[in-house]
Design a protein around this nucleic acid. Structure first.
Length: 472
RNA sequence: GACCCCGUCGUCUAGCCCGGUCCAGGACACCGGCCUUUCACGCCGGCAACGCGGGUUCAAAUCCCGCCGGGGUCACCA
């Protein structure tokens, strides 16, 4: 049997973390088993569905590297097929027309809630015939849910879960306006798309029982279910906008690398012994549902950040340059004209190894790289300014002729030169290196200073040095 | 409220199914230290958990029961 999974978001918002993880698990499960991973957009709610949301979801999936097989399916486009299924159930007396008004329904709900019943609908239209149908109301089609017995689902994550059928409501299949409800649409679509494994959030667990009954009524084989725990905010409550249930694109904008987010999401709720750093390829080889935990996890930004730093250090230099350049251009607005941009890009590529060692995300990386992009004279941070006292400037002035005379402008040669100079002056290397750092980068912390001199080149280095020596 | 699910360091988790190897292991965070021209990285060390109460057993994080706590679901939303 070929395994077929699907991710079925509704295009009413961005791709938030919980949804992204659901997509990831579906993708991994399909890939691991050599199956297919399909995408279905649940856009039956026309009022809330937007194309912006759809684009955000598609972009988010692509950014994370979760490509789906074939074209995505629009649930809305399949509504004739949904209606057909509802009509068939009606014909087979497994469903009925319901003429109840919203007012009646509200009354029933209140009554049921008061009595502590889960079955809200009282079944009053079950046996009502067409002839007695009140005119003027467009009837909805309701499912005749079983009144007794129990439904059992052998969930791949939650285990065997049983619910008494009397708790299952006569749910609406087709609304009065003829549009299908979610409950009907998922079942019909999952069946038609030949989905073998439905992997989704825990919040759908109770829906699974209603859907299971529908499969039974329709005479179809139900897929295997796997309900994965939800992701909670740091305070333990359901992840909401309040605690940054943001779209994956906002993590990207904040400097997150997709492989880091994927790794983080993977480890939140799934584990493979003591392994922590697991890329998508390794995950594909290892992933299976039996290692998915049953309890909800809390979102931990610090752990994501740590993972991000790891992947950042491992990332290709050229790729990072491409990620950093737009941010620098943005910050320097206009100052990064073409000729200078070429120079900066070359510097970044050369200096990236030292830069990426010191950043946890692309934003930080860009900030740290700023001194390679700025033109003279450099703005000096307070700490840099403090480093450049009169004594320091005297040292730098003393150092200048030696640098000017240097023929071999390479990091190791420059280091020898500096060390010799500090020996001769009988001062610690730090007394020279720190002011030099301040002069060349405008900051008190940076990559290795000799490496920076090499990347900057002799002319720029001496220029920045002069700025600092003469500086007020 | 009813139904369902969950409960190991602050957080993610290993161990639980098949009780002893667990005075509970790893990772992140935090706190020391080393390395070092700075900051990082790296390395070394430290802090820190089986929700509570009963059983069963020679022995329980592991099995059973109760309680408590957290979460989810109860629409002509998805």
């Amino acid at each position: 049997m070929t395994i077929v999974t699907r991710f079925a978001p509704s295009p009413t918002g961005f791709l938030h973390l919980g949804a992204a993880r659901t997509a990831l698990f579906n993708w991994l499960y399909a890939r691991h088993h050599g199956g297919r991973f399909l995408l279905r957009i649940e856009d039956t709610d026309r009022k809330r569905s937007t194309t912006q949301a759809l684009d955000a979801i598609l972009d988010g999936l692509r950014w994370l590297g979760l490509e789906w097989d074939g074209d995505w399916v629009s649930q809305f486009a399949r509504r004739p097929r949904h209606a057909e299924a509802a009509e068939r159930l009606l014909a087979e007396d497994k469903a009925f027309r319901c003429y109840c008004t919203p007012g009646e329904l509200a009354e029933m709900r209140e009554k049921a809630l008061q009595a502590g019943r889960t079955r809200l609908y009282d079944g009053r239209c079950r046996e009502r015939h067409g002839a007695e149908a009140p005119s003027g109301t467009a009837p909805a089609i309701r499912f005749k849910a079983p009144l007794d017995g129990e439904s059992v689902i052998d969930d791949l994550v939650q285990g065997e879960v049983t619910v008494a059928n009397e708790k299952l409501d006569d749910m609406v299949l087709l609304r009065g306006d003829g549009t299908p409800t979610y409950m009907l649409a998922v079942v019909v679509d999952d069946h038609d798309m030949e989905i073998t494994h439905v992997i989704r959030g825990d919040d759908h667990l109770t829906n699974a029982f209603r859907q299971y009954q529908l499969y039974l009524a329709l005479g179809w084989e139900a897929p295997a279910f796997a309900h994965i725990p939800l992701i909670h905010g740091a305070d333990g409550a359901k992840l909401s906008k309040r605690h940054g249930a943001l779209g994956v694109e906002s993590y990207r904008d904040d400097g997150c690398l997709p492989e880091a987010l994927a790794n983080y999401l993977l480890r939140l709720g799934w584990s493979h012994g003591d392994d922590e750093v697991i890329d998508l390829q390794q995950a594909t080889a290892w992933f299976d549902l039996d290692a998915v935990g049953r309890s909800a996890g809390r979102f931990d930004a610090a752990k994501l950040e740590n993972l991000n730093g790891h992947y950042l250090r491992a990332a290709d230099d050229r790729r990072l340059v491409d990620l950093v350049m737009p941010r620098l251009a943005d910050e320097l607005a206009g100052q990064l004209a073409e000729q200078h941009a070429i120079t900066v890009e070359a510097r970044l590529e050369q200096g990236m190894a030292g830069l990426k060692e010191r950043a946890k995300n692309i934003v930080e990386l860009s900030e740290n790289a700023m001194f390679y992009a700025r033109k003279r004279p450099l703005p000096l941070a307070d700490k840099a300014l403090a480093l450049l006292d009169s004594e320091a400037r005297r040292h730098l002035a003393g150092l200048r002729p030696g640098l000017d005379a240097a023929v071999d402008w390479k990091a190791d040669a420059l280091e020898k030169l500096l060390r010799r100079f500090s020996d001769e002056e009988r001062v610690k290397l730090g007394k020279i290196a720190q002011p030099l750092r301040a002069a060349l980068t405008g900051a008190a912390a940076s990559p290795g200073i000799f490496e920076i001199m090499e990347v900057l080149g002799k002319e720029e280095t001496l220029g920045r040095l002069d700025d600092a020596i003469q500086g007020a």
